[in-house]
Design a protein around this nucleic acid. Structure first.
Length: 884
RNA sequence: GGGUGUGUAGCUCAGUCGGUUCAGAGCACCUGCCUUACAAGCAGGGGGUCGGCGGUUCGAAUCCGUCCACACCCACCA
């Protein structure tokens, strides 16, 4: 074989192996007799592009799915995209605007044609990008939430709930986005403290004939532009200050419309002036007061946030412009008493950042009570587990307070609500126009198709994505009349793990649990792993506007996909935000290089059957076999608890420290010499096990080396090589090696301090316990030629150090500075005395020996004995140095 | 305003049941090395009052209280 380059080159290998995997359909899954392991991707927006959050999420997904595959499960990762109605419609509107086309000038059909074209151009880019990351999705199963199949699932679901009586239409105060021209759900409103003003306005008491008397009351409002819609002034019935107003009428400034003064407990006496203007059409709470007092609802703001003709003044002005103007008018009219600076929470649209306008409109709602109750129970019973568990609390709070879900959106991009109106205003809900016509004829014989008008609204995007774990397998959705059993659904559902960000716990996770329970009678996934939010290294969220988000594809190009995956995983403990730092990707790249070069070393070795296995090598093989088993157990434990970064770190250190720095250095033959066959084969075996352990996190380099290290047939892959298993381990071997490595460190330390070149052989005098099996290893790793084991009374001089209670001396006549040696020993002695003092204090405490468990006390006694023994040794050394 | 969570080395984090020579890891840093796999490397090293205070206990990074700082979620004081 050709010489491998000194540096790993990811670009060359990644495309090659990804194509190989695709070619052999290694990612594809079909139901069979194996245990299934299923993940559905959190579908990214169809027109989105890959950002660091996706990298994190999909790396974790890929690690889990690859691990499961190597564990022998039938692993299926279903990819796909979300039509993201508001986000996508906004993008299309913006694009059309740039082309000089306004949405209003288009018919619904024309607009949708543009939208679909946009989708064809940009849709799925993100899925292609995921391939660069190594994501092993079953691409044959790729889904899109607005494809015909999944749309059918959505419509059927709507009809299902409507017929169940859980979907209803109602006029409600909704969160209106005047830019997107649609209602949005409560969850899509972001409250931000906003600097504004508190205007104190005089309302004069009417004389009964619509003329102002000299008396007035004062209200405080942040929205003076809505006074024309006032229906009453409200005071608290217990408020003495305003008793005189009872039964009076007052006049709205500027327009002089007469409104009553009413009383309601809602009004806080100590806030503002104690007088509240009630504007039922433009405030949720005012609307409720209006209902209680039977007040007129006067809507003076249009869908774009402009005053309409009902306002009588400032008609056509934007609400914020109108606010400025009306303040001036009020001031001139003498109605403005004062203006205060004021900060209050204001709702903004998550999508457009427009200030939300509370607005009355007819919307469709889905009842949440039963769905939420069952969904809460699913998580509380542990059928779905949250990792980390802390999200349980907010989940419970939300589920216990879930309000009915406003599922209609005044958009075109999405599934159109299957409600069909008759000319008389009645409507029917059916999954197809034909069925609707039939239903309509039942209540209105002779009606024709062209008489029916379908509802203009579409459904909230989440009303399709909540079906995702079911609909990707069976778009017909169980629960509907005539539904046939579906083999895929039966096999893959419920899915195992869901990896997602915590900010969509209510939008998506909770609702999938609801749909899963409703249609399947059980949870859609067993575990939900919440990732953190990816931030830059100084803690800011990654965003386009800040420009602090690297392009993942650039990173992959520079460092390689494996390195990017490692960089992401290194800093990702579950549930904590991720502070992304490019140095972590560098660390990943360095690790790739380390793996690469260790392989170059092994590959360069020649074997010679006539060479006997050196003792040190035999011991190293024995030790590493044990060490490997221990690590496998640790890693498995980490995976079982979703501690992915810990699993990675354990593997990383096993490879770098134990395998490269210790094992390979021990078995490495001198330059130009051959190696014995037994060691060589054991080494290859270890290396393969290590590659398999690393593969889920670094798929490309491990496939490359695995393919290279032995002849492989076409169609073979490390992807399906079984995960290494533990054969159990002998703790005494691992401990003996640990002792040996401490001894080696001590000797190297002496070498460093005395400036002894590495090639110069040292001799060693050992007093005390020493694992004889490790002698060869110590000799090789520390450059030691001769070891003398002597009794405790022997006098030795040189550089001395302790390993546990064993005294090891490097005899160095000439090189040892006795002053320094004495100072060092004295310092050590002091430490030992302090330590002993602490231990004895504990032991002399009667309460301690009485209360503490036997094992703890015994351990303290051992500590005492060890300390005494070490003190004895050090003192003897000091004596011999001083008496010279 | 209410709730939840976090605070351990310069940075990112682990630390399970209160007790192992427990104060750890990785990175960064310092010193010495271009030693024939790897300078993207090797060998060695320094560094923390476990956010503050108080309590429980024989014993506290760990449990309780309180305060401080930060983060997130929820929320109608017009």
């Amino acid at each position: 074989m050709e010489m491998l380059s000194a540096k790993y080159n990811p670009a060359e290998t990644e495309d090659k192996w990804y194509s190989y995997w695709l070619e052999h359909k290694f990612f594809h899954s079909e139901p069979d007799s194996r245990e299934p392991y299923t993940i559905v991707i959190p579908p990214p927006n169809v027109t989105g592009i890959l950002h660091m959050g996706h990298v994190l999420n999909n790396t974790l997904n890929d690690v889990l799915i690859r691990k499961a595959r190597m564990d022998g499960k039938n692993a299926c990762w279903v990819p796909g995209t979300d039509h993201a109605s508001i986000a996508t419609e906004n993008k299309v509107v913006a694009k059309l605007k740039a082309m000089g086309i306004s949405k209003e000038d288009l018919t619904r059909e024309e607009f949708l044609a543009h939208a679909w074209q946009w989708k064809e151009e940009h849709g799925g880019i993100i899925l292609k990008q995921l391939r660069k990351l190594g994501a092993s999705c079953d691409w044959d199963r790729t889904r899109f939430t607005m494809e015909p199949d999944l749309s059918r699932a959505v419509i059927n679901t709507f009809v299902y709930f409507y017929k169940k009586g859980w979907i209803y239409k109602g006029v409600r105060m909704v969160n209106w986005d005047p830019e997107a021209l649609t209602a949005v759900s409560d969850d899509e409103v972001v409250h931000k403290d906003t600097q504004s003003h508190f205007y104190h306005l005089r309302y004069y008491v009417s004389d009964g004939a619509g003329n102002p008397t000299g008396k007035y009351l004062v209200i405080a409002t942040t929205r003076p532009e809505t006074i024309m819609a006032d229906a009453a002034i409200c005071v608290n019935p217990a408020d003495e200050r305003h008793r005189w107003l009872r039964g009076k009428k007052v006049l709205i400034p500027l327009i002089n419309r007469e409104i009553p003064v009413i009383e309601d407990d809602y009004v806080e006496m100590d806030f503002g002036t104690g007088c509240l203007k009630v504007t039922p059409a433009h405030d949720v709470h005012d609307y409720e007061i209006g209902l209680r007092h039977n007040l007129e609802v006067l809507d003076i703001i249009d869908e774009r946030g402009r005053l309409n003709e009902k306002a009588r003044i400032l008609v056509g002005e934007d609400r914020f412009v109108a606010r400025k103007k009306i303040v001036k008018m009020l001031e001139e009219a003498g109605n403005l008493e004062k203006v205060e600076e004021y900060t209050s929470p204001v709702g903004y649209s998550e999508r457009t950042n427009a200030v939300i306008e509370p607005r009355l409109s007819a919307q469709w709602f889905l009842k949440m009570d039963t769905l939420a109750k069952v969904a809460l129970e699913t998580v509380e019973s542990g059928r779905t587990r949250f990792i980390p568990e802390k999200y349980m609390n907010s989940y419970r709070h939300w589920m216990e307070n879930a309000r009915d879900w406003c599922i209609s959106r005044q958009l075109w991009w999405g599934q159109r609500i299957p409600a069909y109106y008759l000319p008389d205003g009645r409507y029917v809900v059916e999954s197809t126009p034909e069925a609707a016509l039939e239903a309509a004829r039942a209540i209105c014989p002779g009606i024709k198709m062209e008489d029916l008008r379908q509802d203009e609204d579409v459904l909230d995007t989440w009303f399709s994505s909540w079906l995702w774990p079911i609909s990707v397998f069976d778009p017909d959705m169980p629960g509907n009349p005539g539904h046939k059993p579906n083999a895929d659904l039966a096999y893959y559902y419920p899915t195992n793990d869901l990896v997602t960000a915590p900010d969509i716990i209510f939008f998506w996770v909770a609702r999938m649990i609801m749909a899963g329970n409703e249609f399947m009678g059980r949870q859609p996934f067993s575990n939900v792993y919440f990732t953190g939010i990816v931030r830059d290294k100084i803690g800011r969220k990654m965003s386009k506007t800040l420009g602090n988000s690297p392009d993942p594809l650039d990173l992959i190009k520079t460092y390689g996909a494996d390195a990017v995956r490692i960089g992401m995983l290194l800093c990702s403990s579950a549930g904590n935000d991720i502070f992304y730092d490019e140095t972590q990707v560098e660390q990943g790249r360095n690790f790739c290089n380390k793996i690469w070069n260790s392989y170059r070393l092994i590959k360069g070795w020649n074997t010679d059957a006539s060479i006997a296995q050196p003792e040190a090598s035999a011991m190293a093989v024995k030790w590493f076999a044990n060490r490997l088993s221990l690590a496998v157990e640790t890693v498995e434990d980490h995976y079982s608890k979703f501690r992915i970064s810990d699993a990675l770190m354990t593997t990383y250190r096993l490879f770098w420290d134990d395998f490269c720095s210790w094992y390979l250095e021990i078995v490495k033959p001198s330059f130009g010499e051959a190696m014995d066959v037994a060691t060589y084969e054991a080494t290859l075996g270890f290396f393969e096990s290590l590659l398999k352990m690393i593969h889920p996190v670094m798929p490309f380099i491990t496939e490359e080396l695995w393919q290279n290290m032995a002849p492989r047939k076409d169609g073979e892959t490390i992807m399906y090589a079984p995960s290494p298993v533990s054969n159990g381990y002998d703790a005494s071997v691992i401990d003996a090696f640990a002792f040996a490595s401490e001894a080696v460190n001590g000797i190297r330390n002496v070498r460093n301090q005395k400036n002894i070149p590495p090639k110069e052989k040292l001799s060693l005098v050992v007093k005390g316990w020493f694992p004889m099996s490790m002698e060869g290893i110590v000799k090789k790793m520390a450059g030691v030629g001769k070891v003398d084991f002597v009794s405790g009374d022997s006098k030795v001089s040189g550089a001395t150090f302790l390993v546990r209670t064993t005294e090891i001396t490097v005899p160095l006549t000439g090189l040892v500075n006795e002053e320094e040696e004495i100072a060092k020993l004295q310092k050590d002695l002091e430490y030992q005395f302090r330590f002993l003092e602490g231990v004895r204090k504990k032991l002399s405490n009667a309460a301690f020996t009485a209360h503490a468990p036997e094992a703890v006390v015994a351990n303290e006694r051992k500590k005492e004995a060890d300390a005494l023994s070490r003190i004895g040794i050090i003192q003897k050394q000091l004596d011999s140095l001083k008496n010279k």
